Computed example of a mutant assay.
Amino acid sequence: MFATVQYLWQSRRVGHSFWRTLIFGGPVLSERRDPVQGLNMPIGQIVWEFLKGGVTYPWTLIGCTLIGGYLLCTRLLFGVELPLYFSDHTAGCVVIVIAVTAWAEVARTVRLLNVPLGLWVAASPFLLDGGTAIASVSDLAAGLALAGLSLPRGTRSREHYGGWDQYIL
């Protein structure tokens, strides 16, 4: 959505019609293009560009994703009951969405939303009913690990994103 708004704004600045560009698209604005583009590339190159383009997989965010998966399974692993089960399950879903979104370098800042979520996961067994002793210790460890793993930015690729580079934290 941000890229669309940015493109429409740039297109308008160079004199193109806002509505025509919104409805029909427009030319690439001031960007060097690879002569082998789009579907003219071999399928292997298309898949490779799709998997690596603008996305890196820092081990910290992979860890956050795995913690989110763990939170989805606390009922199966430890017999966690309501309301702690709902809390763990909801937090697990949100953790995975945030971590996977943060794999995109321009959205890397989103990972910081997992810090308060991790602190909630760490505190929730002591505030909500339904947990066993081992589930409480496990949630405490998972929550603190989630908060800690969400702080580092991770490695960046050599790609650049124009004006968005300054927002990659």
Rank of each mutant, 00 (worst) to 15 (best):
Y161V: 02
D139H: 13
V80R: 00
L144A: 02
N40R: 11
L72Q: 10
V94W: 11
A147M: 01
L29P: 00
Y7P: 02
A102H: 01
L149C: 03
I43M: 14
D129I: 00
V137M: 14
T74R: 05
M1I: 09
T56L: 04
I46F: 13
T74I: 04
S11V: 04
S138A: 14
L113V: 03
L66C: 03
L117K: 09
L39K: 13
L76G: 08
I43F: 15
T132I: 06
S17M: 07
D129F: 01
G53H: 01
T56V: 07
R75Q: 13
S124M: 05
Q166T: 09
G118N: 05
R108V: 04
P35K: 10
V97C: 09
R75H: 14
L71V: 00
T155E: 12
R108D: 04
G92T: 02
A123V: 04
Q6C: 11
A133Y: 12
V95P: 03
W59L: 13
Y7T: 01
A147G: 04
G15I: 08
W9F: 15
V5W: 15
T74H: 04
P58V: 01
A135I: 02
D88R: 10
D88N: 15
R20F: 11
D139P: 01
L66Q: 01
C64E: 03
L146C: 02
R12V: 09
G63E: 03
T109W: 15
I43Q: 12
E31L: 12
S157Q: 10
V28S: 15
G163N: 11
V115Y: 01
R32P: 09
E31W: 11
L61P: 00
F86A: 11
Y7M: 00
L61T: 00
F78D: 04
L22P: 03
H16I: 06
G79D: 06
D139Q: 13
F126A: 03
A102T: 00
L169Y: 15
A102W: 01
F18C: 04
P35L: 09
I46H: 12
L146P: 00
D165R: 11
T90S: 13
A147H: 00
V36R: 14
V106N: 05
T132C: 08
G148Y: 09
G162K: 02
H16N: 10
Y167P: 03
